[in-house]
Amino acid sequence: SGVNQQQLQQLMDMGFTREHAMEALLNTSTMEQATEYLLTHP
């Protein structure tokens, strides 16, 4: 699906929903950016 499943699982383990985590990974290129994205786009 174009996203790193390991990163997706890590974000879900942090408490984010699958949909939200996927959106973040699709819009960013690193785990750090994805986390930042999730925190700034709740």
Rank of each mutant, 00 (worst) to 15 (best):
Q33V: 01
M22T: 14
A34V: 02
T17A: 15
A21R: 00
M22P: 00
Y37A: 05
N27P: 01
M22V: 11
E23A: 09
L39Q: 15
V3E: 06
G15E: 02
L39E: 14
A24Y: 01
E19A: 13
R18A: 07
L38M: 05
A24L: 01
G2C: 10
M22Y: 10
H41D: 09
M14S: 04
M22K: 06
E23K: 08
S29Y: 10
L8S: 01
A34G: 01
D13R: 13
Y37M: 05
S29K: 12
M14N: 04
A24M: 01
T28C: 07
N4H: 08
Q10M: 13
T40K: 09
A24R: 01
T30F: 02
G15A: 03
P42N: 14
P42G: 14
E23C: 09
A24D: 00
T30Y: 02
D13S: 15
Q33H: 05
N27H: 11
Q6Y: 13
L25P: 00
L25W: 05
L26V: 08
S1V: 13
T17Q: 13
P42Q: 15
V3D: 06
S1A: 14
S1W: 05
D13A: 15
H41F: 12
M12F: 03
T17M: 12
M22Q: 07
L39D: 09
G15F: 03
Q6C: 08
E23Q: 11
N27R: 13
Q5L: 14
E32P: 03
V3C: 06
E23H: 11
F16Q: 01
M14Y: 07
T28Y: 06
S1M: 12
Q10S: 08
Q5D: 10
L39R: 11
H41Y: 13
G2W: 13
L11Q: 00
M31W: 13
V3W: 12
Q6P: 06
F16T: 03
Q10I: 14
N4R: 09
F16C: 02
E19M: 10
H41R: 06
F16P: 00
L26F: 08
R18S: 05
M12N: 02
Q5E: 12
L25K: 00
M31F: 15
A21T: 04
E19S: 11
A24Q: 01
A34Y: 02
E36H: 07
Q33Y: 04
A24K: 01
Q5C: 07
A21V: 15
M31K: 03
T17S: 14
Q10N: 06
P42R: 13
